[in-house]
Simulated assay, not measured.
Amino acid sequence: MGSTDQNTSQRNQTILVEFILIGFSDFPNLQGFLFGLFLVMYAVILVGNSLILVITKIDPSLQMPMYFFLGNFSFLEICYVSVTIPRLLADLYRQNRSISFLACAIQMYVFLVLGVTECFMLTVMAYDRYVAICKPLLYPLLMNKKLCIQLAGGCWVSGIPVHIGFTYSVFSLPFCGRNWLDHFFCDIPPVLTLLCGNTFLIEMMIYVIALLVVTIPFMLILGSYVKIISAILKLHSTTGRAKAFSTCSSHLMVVALFFGSGTITYLRPKSSHAAERDKFLSLFYTIVTPMFNPMIYCLRNKDVTVALKKFLLKCIVL
């Protein structure tokens, strides 16, 4: 009997060649509405971040390290959302939610790599603000063009080797034959629920990686802002304090949104995971936060607002 069960299990593991993304099929009457909503949100993300990317490249007043990193961050956001939203829109439109085993692994890998890049990019942006406010006289020397390019490049490539090993470890484990992923993309929590046997090692890897790419960067950002706020409060000029707070507050809001939602998703105990809650929480950090980021930077940063108005006026005149 034990031998028969083992053979059945092995058979189930070998025939698993695709997954079915359940997504939001629990709400059949809302499929059209959700498609329209997510399409509009995706368009807002693409347009908003593209505008910031363009103005940071062409506007002379924004040729500073802060806006160089902001341009990188905007391009990163476009890449980040494009890993999940087009697939979600296609699933809602055609009602065919199958995704191949390889495509699922690639989607998870690229999503995780870009997530790491975002963590590090936000950390570098905090460091830039720290140098600008706490060491203003040394700022041009410390944040030179070569270093900025190296820091941005390091952010983009740092997650590549880490998640090759992690993704391979997840998808090389046996699956139990069930191929229904109760999610709208191949994220870690729903994929882990389909794995057979003990997933303790994978869960430990998640916590170790999270410590390295989430907790440590977040603590560095926090430390930077403790010093930044202390330095701002010592400024005698009210205008100087207001400008410094406005440039830093936008970054702090983005940090809080991104790290807050990511931490709740990946670092809470496995027993507290619920499919519906995970899906809606994932919507927050994959769609909602990237949509608000351009708005936050435009509303909270006067230099970006002015540059954007100039660019739009130029486009209208042309």
Rank of each mutant, 00 (worst) to 15 (best):
M291T: 12
S172R: 11
P65W: 09
M291D: 00
T167A: 10
V288I: 15
L281G: 03
E118I: 10
C119H: 14
T117H: 03
A152M: 04
L283D: 01
V17M: 04
F73W: 02
D91M: 14
S158I: 09
R300H: 08
Y285E: 13
D182T: 13
V110I: 15
A274F: 05
P190M: 04
A210H: 14
Q6P: 00
N293A: 08
C155M: 02
L313N: 10
M125D: 06
I202T: 14
A256D: 01
F101I: 02
P65I: 11
S3L: 13
H273M: 05
I164L: 12
N12H: 04
C119M: 10
I287F: 03
C148S: 14
V191G: 01
I228H: 01
Y93H: 14
R97H: 13
G115I: 03
L76H: 06
K227P: 00
P136E: 04
C186Q: 01
A242D: 07
L194T: 05
T84L: 07
Q13C: 02
G71D: 13
V226D: 07
T263G: 08
L308S: 07
S100Y: 02
Y297I: 12
K227R: 14
I20L: 02
V162K: 05
I264T: 06
I206T: 05
N7A: 14
M143F: 13
I20D: 08
E203Y: 08
C176Y: 07
K135W: 12
S82V: 06
K310N: 13
F35L: 15
I149L: 12
N29P: 01
G240T: 07
F292A: 12
L312E: 03
M295G: 07
F245Q: 00
H236D: 13
R87Y: 02
L222K: 05
C186K: 00
L62F: 05
T4E: 13
F184E: 00
N144R: 09
P65D: 07
P189S: 08
T215F: 08
F27Q: 15
L141S: 12
V44M: 11
P190N: 11
R11G: 01
F27P: 00
P28K: 04
S246W: 10
T8F: 15
S25M: 06
V157N: 03
M125G: 07
